[in-house]
């Protein structure tokens, strides 16, 4: 069995914010009729989490459910548990029209932390990062410069950013550049 390796092997950078490639993270894409009772119950039973509402992020224990679109959720879990969770979800969903796919190896996840992380994100994404508009518990799918990404705050000073693994070096370069010391715009 080969050793799993994350996109940038937990590379880090310190500047306006602390940037880190967050390492191995289990990610499971769930597609289905989220409003369907059978789907909601199956997902809740396996994850132990309530289903997030529009643009919501729900965390508990070692799992997080992220709302990706009206018919798509992303389940984050420990990397080693991924295949087990996929099997449990597939079994629980049974005949429900739904899709469960392990996408852990297709994505990269970055953690951005520090009091100035809003500055860093706002330089790269066309998103209102003011504390009034963007708070923990909300996910925003958007672009960071030229690549698609999803960003949410796990607490007031920590952001999680997901992108495709193939663009992980680009994303890391972007974040490091935007976090270059002395480049704070000072909006937030």
């Amino acid at each position: 069995m080969s050793e799993p390796v994350s996109a940038l092997n937990r590379a880090t950078f310190d500047g306006l914010a602390h940037v880190q490639e967050a390492g191995l993270q289990g990610m499971i894409t769930l597609r289905g009729t989220v409003l369907d009772e059978g789907f909601a119950k199956a997902v809740s039973d396996v994850t132990g989490l309530a289903l997030p509402g529009q643009r919501g992020v729900v965390s508990g224990g070692d799992s997080t459910l992220v709302w990706m679109s009206p018919d798509e959720l992303l389940l984050l879990c420990p990397h080693g548990d991924t295949s087990d969770r996929v099997a449990k979800l597939t079994a629980a969903l049974g005949d429900t029209h739904a899709l469960v796919v392990d996408v852990s190896d297709a994505r990269a996840i970055f953690t951005l932390s520090g009091p100035q992380l809003r500055e860093v994100v706002a330089k790269l994404a066309p998103v209102d990062m003011s504390p009034a508009a963007f708070q923990p518990g909300t996910v925003r799918r958007t672009r960071f410069a030229q690549v698609a990404a999803a960003v949410w705050l796990s607490d007031a000073e920590t952001a999680q950013i997901i992108c495709f693994r193939s663009v992980a070096p680009y994303m890391f370069a972007l974040l490091c550049n935007a976090a270059t010391p002395g480049t704070a715009v000072g909006i937030f």
Binding site: Q54, R55, S69, P70, P126, D128, R140, R141, T142, R143
Partner: peptide, 12 residues
């Protein structure tokens, strides 16, 4: 209308 995001042109 699906995700409620006020998206500017470059996201669309």
């Amino acid at each position: 209308p699906y995700c409620g995001v006020k998206a500017e042109e470059t996201e669309l």
